[in-house]
């Protein structure tokens, strides 16, 4: 075998990049060569940004969203409605819901879903903290916004069961037809769910 890898430092960089999600060997190679040709100050800016995320970004003490400081932006915001709590899997789901500007309540980030194959049960998620938050009776409604797949549904069902005894209204995000979609193009599962979750039109 003759030269199967790149120069030491370059190979180190590629090895690091390959570990990132959504980056394959070819992509890592492209990024590495791109960085090689990039001006030093741009690379410094990138390196600085990477470290800043690591140094300054924390996890919100209340809701486990990403935060700078003890509390995240939503938890710091006094105008947010403390009576409605939206339970999501990951911080990126908070961003997605925030973008809708529909929701004015607060969040709770579970940090994943029930996934026995990966050894993730209720104790590995921020579920105990969720129930602590519900204890004082401020929260009137919990919206379960986990993904509509096998694990997400199981997690929502588990939380729904656990909350049944504590007198809080529990709702699940509606799932059904996408906006701008065609009824005839919807698959049976989606259309079936849309039927099950149909609502009355208020006159």
């Amino acid at each position: 075998m003759y030269q199967t890898s790149y120069e030491g430092v370059l190979q180190d960089l590629i090895d690091q990049l390959v570990r990132l999600p959504a980056v394959g060997p070819k992509g890592a190679q492209r990024i590495a060569y791109h960085l090689l040709e990039t001006d030093r100050e741009d690379v410094e800016a990138l390196a600085g940004a990477l470290l800043a995320v690591k140094d300054r970004l924390t996890v919100c003490e209340v809701c486990f969203n990403t935060a700078e400081g003890a509390l995240c932006r939503v938890c710091r915001d006094e105008t947010r409605d403390p009576a409605v709590l939206c339970v999501v899997e990951e911080p990126k789901d908070v961003i997605a819901i925030e973008r809708t500007r529909e929701f004015t309540g607060r969040y709770h980030v579970l940090g994943g879903v029930l996934d026995p194959m990966r050894g993730i049960g209720p104790d590995q998620l921020h579920i105990r903290e969720l129930f602590t938050r519900l204890a004082d009776g401020t929260v009137q409604e919990v919206i379960l916004a986990t993904d509509p797949n096998t694990e997400g549904e199981a997690t929502a069902a588990y939380l729904g069961r656990q909350m049944a005894t504590i007198g809080v209204a529990v709702t699940r995000l509606a799932s059904g037809l996408p906006m701008g979609g065609d009824l005839e193009l919807a698959d049976e599962v989606t259309l079936g769910r849309a039927f099950a979750g149909r609502r009355r039109i208020d006159a």
Binding site: G119, P122, T150, E153, T155, Y158, R161
Partner: peptide
Amino acid sequence: SAAKSHSSLERETLQSTLDVWNDR
């Protein structure tokens, strides 16, 4: 993992999640 768990508390948690998977 329920078969391997030793503490009764741990087993209780596993049983409660089992109900959810039973539903699926």
